[in-house]
Amino acid sequence: MAWLSLLADYTMRNVVLGSALLGAVSGALGCFAVLRRQGLLGDTLAHAALPGIALAYLLTGQRALPVLLAGAALSGWLGTAALIYLSRATRIKEDSALGIVLSVSFAVGVVLLTFINRQPQARAVGLERFLLGQAAALTADQVELMALLSAGVLIVLVLGYKEFALLAFDAPFAASLGWNTTALSLLLTTLIVITVVVGLQAVGVVLMASLLIAPAVAARQWTDRLHLMVWLAAAFGAISGVMGAWLSASDRGIPTGPVVVLVLSAITVVSLVVRRVRAWLARRAAKGEAER
């Protein structure tokens, strides 16, 4: 079994496990984001996390992953808050607010990164790896941290499944039941923030959006039931994580993130086509039935 020997390799095991985990969690969570029409929130969030990473390094002088991720989570969360506030309190529409928060916070991040890189003592901090991701460089404790955070996200998702489902399909009804929908959607956003932050160093800022959206859209083509959709999306995410890690490991020059995204895109395209074909077959069968 060739692929089993891959798992025996230390680096490879980390990369495969990390990517699979990330794919599964973001796939499952992405269903709720996509159903709530917040697909691009992940994209903006990922960009908003960048200045946090740079600031965390500048303020603490440390490059330990937990410190950087804490900074990323904090600034991603602040970015979301700014986003919601902008589209509610001013006349700026949601898509513009997304674009503004995304481009400005990313620009601030780039200014900080270039500033850090031009400090003499900090030549090789390697914060750039968050831009495009470097799953191939994942170490065992980083995967452990990812696993821990992902497990936390999954537990909250399972516990709050019913509430999140109602929030996704009929938020006004949820509010009329007396639920605190603001707190609920804040919780869901916080879960997305954690997932994005976990994914940053594996696939990078730019490609994170795809990991949340594509599995959910692909899964949506196969079923109309939410729990099936969530399971399928998680599976699609995990499969593309493993495939991406495996394909990119076969050649050192290929970064993992883009491969994961391309595998995911292929799955999505196939799902979309299959849905069309099934719909066409069903229509034909119905027509034949009617003629008979």
Partner: peptide, 9 residues
């Protein structure tokens, strides 16, 4: 969110 990451990747 599906199209542009695929192209960029």
């Amino acid at each position: 969110g599906i199209v542009f990451p695929a192209m960029f990747a």
